[in-house]
Amino acid sequence: MAVSKELSRFTRDALVAGKTRGQISQALTTSGWAASEVREALDAWAETPFSPPIPRPQTTLSARDFFVYTLTFGVMIFGAVCVVQLFHALIDVWMNDSQYRASSRIRWAMAVLIVTTPVFIWLTFRERAKLAADPALYRSAIRKWLIYLTLLASAAVLLGDLIAVVYAFLSGDFTVQFLLKALVVAVVAGFIFVYYLGDIRKGDAL
């Protein structure tokens, strides 16, 4: 939730006037501001006797971040879908001993992966180097949003995969081929979930 300009200005003026955080909190609460809004308004300023009050770092939003992170996540999702397609087609070939229908699926997935994997790795290493040099980039709002959206999508895929396995089991359609395909989906979605969970935790720790 963003702090309103009026509330932010009031909090700053009150801190400059020498009011304590308790006094400011009480005055705002009495005036009808919600506890979460009051806490957020006060958290925006560092707790230090230094005057004027020092603002805490805020999340950033830039066109460059939009370009880099949207490209990275787009390439990653496209590639992940094709990894699943590739392994599903390979399982079909392996289990049915027939490549009649699988050939075009395999070639398409391979073409996508040959392009997207190096691009994803290059973008990721490049971004990691930038984050290491300037940890302020961890505050990118677009980066956080895309990571949380990816976590949401991968968690949804994992749950859907599990539901599909249970449903197949209950319906009597549970085969080795189905199990292997479900396992591929789980591994890919689980990999993405764990990878970006570690990423967001690292950013939060800084």
Binding site: G79, F87, A89, L90, Q99, I114, T117, Y195
Partner: peptide, 20 residues
């Protein structure tokens, strides 16, 4: 995890070439 990603995709591509 990145190393595993590269290994997994590489294995998939090799298997793909072997299959088709």
């Amino acid at each position: 995890l990145l190393a595993l990603l590269i290994a997994g995709v590489g294995a998939g591509l090799i298997a793909g070439f072997m299959a088709v």
